[in-house]
């Protein structure tokens, strides 16, 4: 009886020890960060045979207690960085994140400058004042009256 109780306690300890390791991997989140190597769509929405095998691999490794980072690194080692849905924010790949931000900032700075220069040029080209003869002004009045009717 004591042995049975000890065995049950040991099993419970093992289960509780393993539980946090499994729970630490957000399998769906990890699948969203990866691409199917054959169809290039996010892993979580792909049912391609290669994607199904990678999904199974993620499940297996998560059950073995691997962290998300360990699983991701292992897949990058096997499939290269192309398996990542978004490039890492380090090393040469940082350029993918930096260039669009720089372009947006450059655009935000350039648009007001271009607009200001364009307005200045338009003012310079437009006549300073409007001059009309008495005859023209009378005709304008007539046309406005017509429109008023």
């Amino acid at each position: 009886m004591r042995r049975l109780l000890a065995a049950i306690c040991a099993a419970l300890i093992l289960v509780t020890a393993a539980a946090p390791a499994m729970a630490s991997v957000d399998v769906l989140g990890l699948e969203q960060q990866l691409k199917c190597p054959t169809c290039e769509v996010p892993l979580n929405v792909s049912n391609a045979p290669s994607a199904l095998r990678i999904k199974a691999y993620i499940e297996e490794k998560a059950a073995d207690g691997w962290t998300s980072n360990q699983i991701e690194q292992s897949l990058v080692q096997q499939f290269g960085r192309d398996i990542l849905a978004t490039p890492p924010k380090s090393g040469f790949d940082l350029i993918v994140w930096v260039v669009p931000a720089v372009l947006i900032l450059a655009g935000l700075v350039a648009i007001p400058l271009i607009a200001r220069a364009w307005i200045r040029r338009t003012r310079a080209v437009a006549p300073a004042g409007v001059s009309a003869t008495a005859e023209e002004l009378a005709r304008l009045d007539q046309e406005l009256h017509k429109l008023g009717d």
């Binding site: 054959t38 290669s50 095998r53 691999y57 096997q78 499939f79």
Partner: peptide, 16 residues
């Protein structure tokens, strides 16, 4: 006869 059959395993898990 000196022939090599050489497989190239692509886009696959190493263990598989």
């Amino acid at each position: 006869e000196g022939v090599y059959v050489l497989g190239i395993d692509v886009k696959d898990l190493t263990g598989d």
